[in-house]
Each structure stands twice: as C-alpha cells, then as structure tokens.
Amino acid sequence: MNGMSKIVKVTACILIIPGIVFGLYIIMHGHLTPGGGFQGGAVIATISALFIIAYADEIRGVLDKDILSLMESMALIAFISLAFLGLSTTFFHNFLVNGGGLFGNPVSGINPGDLNTGGVIPLMNLAVGLEVYSALSLIVVVMYFGSKQEVLEDVN
C-alpha cells in the first residue's frame, strides 16, 4: 500500500549492486584515495535507504532491526578493540604498520595502489564503514516504519 511504483522498484534493483560495490570500494581504498569509512558507509546507507523505501511493503515483515542494531554495536566494539590492541605503546597505536603481515607492507615513495598497507587503518575503516551503514539504515528503518504506526495509548 505504501510501496513505490514499478519504475522506482526496478531502478532500485539496478542501482543496488553498483552502489554497494562503489561503497565497499570507497571503504577499502580509504587509506589510498579520498574517502574512507564514513563516506563509504554513507554511500551504502543511501542505497539501503532507497531499497527500504522502494520495497517498504515487501520488507516490512522480513526486516529484523535487531540484526542491524547488533551489527552497529559490534562495529563500534571492534573499533574500540582495535584501538585498545595498540595499548602496549599508546591508545590508538598503529601496531600492524610496516610489520610485513596483514596490511603491513612498508611504503617508501610513491604507492601506486598497494592495498596491503596502512596497518590498522583499513581495519578501522571497515569497522567505521559498517557502523555508519548500519546506524544510518537503522535511523531510516525506525523513522519510516515508526511514522506509519499508531501511537500507543498513554503508557503512564
């Protein structure tokens, strides 16, 4: 009843794959090119909002807010844990950089696009991107479906 027209639904279906790929690209290349976790998460959340609004009727019973809420909390906890893991030196110490392991390739001079650099920065980008995506989607879901429902009687 509240769903959009067929044109909007088909357009949302076409846009969802390139949109999510573009957002993930921005998140994962955050330490090489302009962008990062906040921007990429906002891109994915935009596509998610378009999908939620376009398919509101079909999604109403299926969508689980608890999963999005759990994802948001877990991403924030992962961010703080990554910050605490460097506590042997300082809070937010980059303990993976130049170590040779995960994201640990040393950089000297121009880096033409080696993703395996940056130490803990790509992991933090991923955590922040997940957090921004789930938080903004959650706001859209709660406000959109909440505004369609009736207010309960006085709960006092």
Partner: peptide
Amino acid sequence: TGANNIVTSIVFDYRGLDTLGEASVLF
C-alpha cells in the same frame, strides 16, 4: 602510517580518539 591518504592517516591514526568520538555520536 603506511597510508597514501594523509587525511585518513590523521583521522584514523594521529587523531584516532576524535574518530572514536564521532562514531560514538552516531551511536
């Protein structure tokens, strides 16, 4: 920091505490 992007290296490494505050504000 190993990052080409100086802005990202500041936001997520030198001033990581600020980013933690931003994420907390969103939460």
